[in-house]
Nucleic acid binder design. Structure first.
Lengths: 220, 220
DNA sequence: TATTCAATTAAACGTTTGTTTAAATTATAA
DNA sequence: TTATAATTTAAACAAACGTTTAATTGAATA
């Protein structure tokens, strides 16, 4: 019979459907705000399958964080390494990262908004990824910058700030969407990367003029 | 007897203790992740007092959002209005806002991290505040900038970005704290405001040099 | 002293929570 | 076909959830 062939559309797909539904629901309702019954129903899967595949709800969250972080890190490594000048590499990284954020909006929201939760397990997990990102930003951005301009800039300040900037439009989108201002369509435009790139050029010493007018920057 | 006088130390204080405990716990565990029994125990108050004072858990959250937003808006109005030049006003606003964020870390975390939650009631509530902030940023920053430089910059892009930048160090702090890198103490330093101020000078046209080197900004 | 009202309490309401169990089903391999 | 392993299922578990109720306490007013 042909039953054996067609029925296999369930099976290994169940695991993926769970992850897909989890990302969607966690982004909208939060991790703690999403029940496993609602999740399993959305994924079209039996309740027990979640603990069967992932062991616990928390491990499911870890897998989501893992997918997003590893993708983000891969972009950082690819775009920030190499022999091009810093300006070019930064522009490439920011552009690629924002494209990646756009394509993984829900992953981004889960990763960002579940940040300060108090679970030591999750926090340590994120800290591990954070250390890697800080390391590459320090090596590829801060140190070359310091060698060039003589100014020391901390990756611990600049790393979170850069990520926050790039994520801001997606982080606030659920609220912005409901504001119904006149120029909503402006969100779709190009140049979002460039405004962020320009920021880093400004603080990196490429822009001297911003130093005038009462804002001294002796601290960097 | 003297019982009447001393016992009144409970009473109107209970309401404040509930808010205080709620801000602390919501910031660490999220809104959905914090139970009312844990909350009432932390506030040193009977469980039923929360619904007695606030009606529901959601109304308690609204009050927290209200406190933070109104304070943030007050700073925006105070520092961005007036006859000083844009550069001065922006520097003042960023400096005051970051001081305010620092003093209300937990309020900030609750307001930011509970952003995309799907409750229409909460979303509309935040949108109301967001509209006011976008309006003042448009009037006091974007339009004067447009008149001066000829470039149109959208408050819907710049507003969330500015808030995200200023909040980044506090948003990521729970993870950064656990990373134990060498220069943790650098987080305490001054100049955090200035690096953000510089960004806005850069994108506002004060900095011409950042326009060189492959990053055109015709879109603003 | 009697009355009034806000504050506080313990207890219970019915749901929903994450997780586990044991049986049934399906697919793979011998 | 038989044996073996991987999925899927329905049912149940204790615990925690937000909320409500009715009774009690305390202080202020009359």
């Amino acid at each position: 019979m042909n039953k054996k062939v067609n029925i296999k559309q369930t099976g290994p797909e169940s695991r993926e459907r769970i992850v897909k539904a989890a990302v969607k629901l966690f982004a909208r309702q939060g991790f703690a705000g999403t029940g496993l019954r609602e999740l399993s129903a959305d994924a079209g899967v039996n309740l027990a399958m979640i603990n069967y595949f992932f062991g616990s709800k928390k491990e499911l969250l870890k897998e989501i964080l893992d997918v997003f972080f590893s993708g983000y890190m891969a972009i950082a490594r690819k775009e920030l390494s190499g022999d091009d000048d810093l300006q070019t590499k930064l522009g490439r990284f920011i552009s690629s990262a924002i494209t990646y954020f756009e394509a993984h909006r829900d992953y981004l929201l889960v990763t960002i908004t579940e940040l300060p939760h108090d679970d030591p397990d999750i926090i340590e997990y994120k800290a591990t990824w954070g250390r890697q990102m800080i390391e590459i930003i320090d090596r590829e951005i801060c140190r070359p910058l310091s060698a060039k301009t003589g100014r020391r800039i901390s990756p611990i300040v600049i790393g979170p700030m850069l990520t926050s900037m790039m994520a801001s439009r997606f982080l606030f989108f659920p609220v912005i969407k409901h504001m119904r201002s006149d120029n909503i369509s402006a969100i779709q435009d190009e140049g979002y990367s460039e405004i962020i790139s320009r920021f880093f050029l400004a603080i990196s010493g490429y822009c001297k003029e911003s130093n005038k007018g009462g804002l001294s920057c002796h601290w960097i």
